[in-house]
């Protein structure tokens, strides 16, 4: 039988005696009084980054670019801005300007078939085009249901609603 006596291994016993207090300290329950929690994370709506309201000029320029996929001329920008300024109710003025745009032949809107064949893609692109953000699942559910249950809803009407929306007035 192997002899582990102090006399046989004096150095080892000495080291053991010296290390024992450290081992005891390391083995105590450090988290005895700790409370485990979840870090608070602020949940923001998808449009939270938009905090500046567009000026009339910005609104018109962006609207035109969104609908026609090209830039509005400086002269026309001034004229349309004047028209909006000449009407006190800006929402009504915007609505009239947008419905005039919709009467132009070169307005770029997907066909009804394209929208209904792939509603998900249409919605993704519409949110990015007008709101410059991703669609949420709640929004997707609403629009998919709304489009499916309303035969009269065309891409033009969807675009019209987006351009009239309050969020479209912010960037």
């Amino acid at each position: 039988m192997k002899d582990f006596s102090l006399r046989s291994y004096p150095v080892k016993w000495l080291l053991l005696v010296l290390l024992l207090p450290f081992l005891l300290i390391q083995c105590r329950n450090k988290h005895k009084n700790s409370v485990f929690e979840v870090n608070p994370v602020q949940s923001l709506p998808p449009s939270a980054g938009k905090d500046k309201q567009k000026t009339t000029q910005q609104f018109i320029s962006i609207l035109y670019a969104n609908l026609f996929q090209k830039a509005l001329s400086a002269n026309e920008l001034v004229e349309i801005t004047n028209c909006i300024t000449s009407i006190g109710d800006k929402e009504t003025a915007h609505e009239i300007v947008i419905s005039n745009f919709m009467n132009h032949s070169d307005v770029r809107i997907p066909s009804n078939t394209e929208m209904r064949d792939d509603v998900d893609t249409f919605l993704d692109e519409t949110y990015k085009r007008f709101f410059v953000r991703d669609i949420t699942e709640a929004e997707r559910a609403f629009f998919k249901d709304f489009i499916a249950s309303n035969e009269n809803v065309t891409p033009e009407l969807v675009y019209f609603a987006f351009t009239l929306a309050d969020e479209y007035n912010y960037y």
Partner: peptide
């Protein structure tokens, strides 16, 4: 339908706490 979709979008936007000033026609 245009107004129904607009109202839905505006309701979502309401969560941002920002509103559009209007003369309330």
């Amino acid at each position: 339908p245009i107004y129904q979709m607009k109202y839905f979008l505006d309701n979502v936007w309401l969560a941002s706490g920002k509103t559009i000033d209007t003369i309330n026609n």
